[in-house]
């Protein structure tokens, strides 16, 4: 029983870390731009597919894919923000939401066109393909690696936001856009930068998911974006700390749910989301808006 629980926890932690990587970019973009980006799941998917293509082109080396794939997605993010999203900032919220939704439709089919509608099998990450015994049961090393990467990204983000000049500007702009602009911050450029960075984070999550999932399917972005929404809402829209803890919570909840209550695993997730929205709409760590 104990080892079973430990393994469920480990599975929950690694699952949660993927959601965190996606939710972090989503949260960052919402915090600064005020846009809830439906297409963020598509960036995750594109990250995975591009990582896959690069690794295949460069002799099956996953690490090259992980390095280059997300960079390409960041460039895609640049195009999306610079030429589309920027033109709807002044409009009401549904228009912004729907614009990003248009990209979900676009990227979903684009992936099918470029990579085919079927699933693709992906190789593992060199050096991390083994399993180690934990409490008498095998656990993949790569999943441990992911459990380590998540907090590293969190610390990196924290350092970036709290300790650097760029981070100060980002924080200032997310709390008071007009003030930031009055202080000489070039808000449009900042928005682009944050969006590109956020896209890169989402794609990084996708790239890391390649060896974990071992399988790429064109719908993988939609599943993840909804989970990321749940996490972002539970933690508090715009709060990175909230997104991190929310991702852990949802990761664990869903791992335990799958193990002990398979029929209600999804139901639990969404009832938690609705509950938080009703009783504490700003989430556990968000500020009242």
């Amino acid at each position: 029983m104990l080892e079973s629980i430990v393994h469920v926890c480990l599975a929950g932690l690694s699952g949660g870390m993927f959601i965190w990587l996606v939710a972090s970019g989503l949260t960052l973009i919402f915090g600064v731009l005020g846009v809830l980006n439906f297409a963020h799941g598509s960036f995750y998917m594109l990250g995975a597919y591009l990582c896959f293509s690069v690794l295949r082109a460069l002799g099956q080396n996953f690490w090259w894919g992980l390095l280059l794939g997300p960079l390409v997605v960041a460039a895609v993010g640049y195009l999306v923000e610079r030429f589309f999203l920027r033109r709807v900032y002044g409009l009401e919220l549904p228009y912004q939401l729907l614009l990003t939704f248009a990209f979900v439709l676009l990227f979903d089919d684009l992936v099918k066109i470029l990579w085919g509608a079927g699933s693709l099998g992906a190789p593992g990450a060199p050096g991390l393909t083994d399993s180690v015994p934990i409490l008498g049961r095998q656990f993949p090393v790569y999943n441990l690696f992911v459990i380590a990467v998540g907090p590293l990204v969190a610390v990196g983000l924290w350092a970036l936001l709290e300790k650097t000049w760029a981070g100060r500007i980002i924080r200032a702009s997310s709390s008071d856009r007009e003030m930031a602009s009055a202080l000489g911050v070039k808000v449009p450029a900042l928005f682009t930068a944050v969006f590109v960075f956020g896209s890169w984070l989402g794609a990084l999550g996708g790239g890391l998911a390649v060896p974990y999932l071992g399988l790429l399917t064109p719908g993988m972005g939609e599943q993840v974006i909804i989970e990321a929404f749940v996490v972002a809402v539970i933690g508090g829209l715009g709060s990175l700390k909230g997104a991190f803890l929310g991702a852990l919570l949802i990761g664990l909840l869903s791992a335990f749910g799958t193990r002990f209550l398979p029929a209600f695993d999804m139901f639990l997730t969404f009832i938690l989301m609705a509950g938080v929205l009703l009783w504490r709409p700003q989430g556990f760590f968000g500020e009242k808006r």
Partner: peptide, 19 residues
């Protein structure tokens, strides 16, 4: 088979030009 792609394009055109 890629009708979603075209819907995406139509949606973008409407959102950006013909709200």
């Amino acid at each position: 088979p890629y009708w979603m792609l075209w819907f995406g394009v139509v949606l973008l055109v409407i959102l950006l030009g013909f709200r």
